[in-house]
Design a protein around this nucleic acid. Sequence first.
DNA 1: GTGCCACTTAAAGCCAACTTGAGGTCAAGT
DNA 2: ACTTGACCTCAAGTTGGCTTTAAGTGGCAC
Lengths: 141, 141
Amino acid sequence: MKSLEISEVVKRSGLPASTLRYYESLGLIESSGRRGLKRLFNPSVLERLDIISLSRWAGFTLDEIGDWFGRDGRVAIDKAQLVQKADEVEARATQMRALSKIIRHTSQCPEENHLECDNFRKLMKIARRHRPTKEATTKVR
Amino acid sequence: MKSLEISEVVKRSGLPASTLRYYESLGLIESSGRRGLKRLFNPSVLERLDIISLSRWAGFTLDEIGDWFGRDGRVAIDKAQLVQKADEVEARATQMRALSKIIRHTSQCPEENHLECDNFRKLMKIARRHRPTKEATTKVR
DNA sequence: GTGCCACTTAAAGCCAACTTGAGGTCAAGT
DNA sequence: ACTTGACCTCAAGTTGGCTTTAAGTGGCAC
């Protein structure tokens, strides 16, 4: 299995080298060795970076994501915990769709003040029902 | 229209007073006056806070949200911009659902290493297709 | 062997979105 | 008149997720 230099991983993953080093420092990825000082990466790192990016995008913290990866390079996370996460993400997706509807409606509503539009209020109510009660959510960028 | 003290707004909105003051400092909400030093709020602030919380949750920045509210207390945002936002949010919802599926699958896949599971790879591919190309996303909490 | 240049490190800096803390104010109850 | 306690302001601190910077290193082409 060919090793990749960091520049190659940068090119293929789209992530800057600083981020890769940062992720490594957190234990989210690992380099397979060094040539001189230079890190070498196993190509499988690319798949892992995909999972990380996607999960970050969905609102998981690096901390949470880190928990998923065992020492041996396998995805190791408790089944029940995974199912719960899946539910969480799905609920979030549902709410996003509600918001999208609210926004789309807002763009077309003739009512001059949207707060006075019944349809708008109704959508808000639906969205509110799906709102996290406490502080379930995380950060994304 | 009865004015609300900040404690009342805290109770009804679920947001801490510090956040309300912070939002006011950013111009996202406004107090209708003072009794002594104490801020008084128009009850309509609650609806606005709902919109703000929901939008924050969906990934909009306070900056973006701030743009939606005109000086006169009405929601004033460009139609085309709104439609675009709705599309963005919807795309995000779609992707979230894909991720949810990936996670759920991961929880059930017999494959010991998920990276080697075809189904998993397939889902990843779908999710990747919906990934933002550049840096479209924001922060949430 | 000498220079180049892609890499390295550690530490500091940055941004959004708040929160915390210190010290001050005021209306209301006793 | 005085205490209480809910509110106030302003500045500084916090967190997550990086990026930037300064100074160093080492493989490779010449």
